[in-house]
Write a protein that binds this DNA or RNA. Sequence first.
DNA 1: TGTGAAACTTAACAGTGTTCACTATTTTTG
DNA 2: CAAAAATAGTGAACACTGTTAAGTTTCACA
Lengths: 212, 212
Amino acid sequence: MGIQERKTRHKEDLRKRILEAAKKLFVTAGYEATSIRKIAKEIEFSPTTIYLYYKDKSDIIYALHQEGFQLLRQDFQPLMQVESPFERLKALGRCYIKFAFTHPDFYELMFIMKDPMQYLEINCVEAAWDEGERVFDFLLQTIRDCQEEGYFKGLDTIHVAMEAWASVHGMCALYVSGHLKSMMHVVFGDEDQERMIESAFRVLVHYLESTK
Amino acid sequence: MGIQERKTRHKEDLRKRILEAAKKLFVTAGYEATSIRKIAKEIEFSPTTIYLYYKDKSDIIYALHQEGFQLLRQDFQPLMQVESPFERLKALGRCYIKFAFTHPDFYELMFIMKDPMQYLEINCVEAAWDEGERVFDFLLQTIRDCQEEGYFKGLDTIHVAMEAWASVHGMCALYVSGHLKSMMHVVFGDEDQERMIESAFRVLVHYLESTK
DNA sequence: TGTGAAACTTAACAGTGTTCACTATTTTTG
DNA sequence: CAAAAATAGTGAACACTGTTAAGTTTCACA
């Protein structure tokens, strides 16, 4: 069935083009600007057509959410080769922070916005958030490796991982939301935000180091 | 006439009643449900009337943001009396987390949403975010007191404070956004979220303690 | 009582997500 | 080959949203 095949390919193509348009709007103009109608205009189709390829807006948002995790995994790829577990752990943290600074919109979509998590809860009760799982598993394994070298003695792996993630996520979230900026305007001179987070991260690393 | 009665009852403090209505909708039905039109319906006035008392929606949102900080300061009040600085620091963290769990909507408004920060940037370039400043100052002073007792040796006060805030905020943010829930569904059995955060917090406290 | 200001509302604009009913076009089938 | 059926796409509408310009009502004071 060559014709069938071509048709389904065309259909897959349009689905992809919708996501591409959504992504373009998202990265250039932010979440607010990414409306069904604007996506439709971008691909020169009627807004209703989009509903033939995606269930609703949250469906598209979740697809973007997954694109973000693909980006993050690409950034993480090289870190797999770092031999020393503790160096790998530090690099992981730095890489995570850098991602948040480089793609703040994606970071917000992936780790801050409620919508994608709600989408998961509603649409697939079982196979929940494997994107998050994969990233967290990498963190878990790295911490386990650190423990084999004597770090985090007497501490539970999962709780250490949770604390580490929360620390770094906290910094990134405060940056992305603008709270760090408002804060620094007041408390600190004009040392820029990235340097502030670097310093906070160094404090964290100091804590982690001294568990050995 | 019910309308006449309504008009003579509260005429001057309509501004306050608008905020009360907004707060009621906000705490009972969340941010999404807090629209100008619904607030208007709540106080039995036309939507346009609200614009005579508040510049725009972000003006109301920011007023709610401030209400939230009033609540948080009330919770913090008793902690001022804790003598031991390190005990005070721990209590501060626990109290902060408890606030996020008790008032997740307010927490989101205060520490996660961009809108109130944008409002500050636009409307008062100078006197930025004194609410945040006051809370952070309390944290800073507590850490300084800890340092006088030998904690956090060789670490910068502000960077330690930043790291501590980020850690605890990270936990709260992951809870409020639902990411913690989705995560735990996968990684961990069904230890509930609050216990997970408690454990992560204990890890943090362990780090802090071992700086002495 | 007349007037001007203040308080408030109506109607509208421009935007949002979403659905229903409809029209072409293409494919399948009797 | 023509009729029926499935497919792809659309226009108009619904029910919302924040916001504003213009108009009306109310009321104190000269």
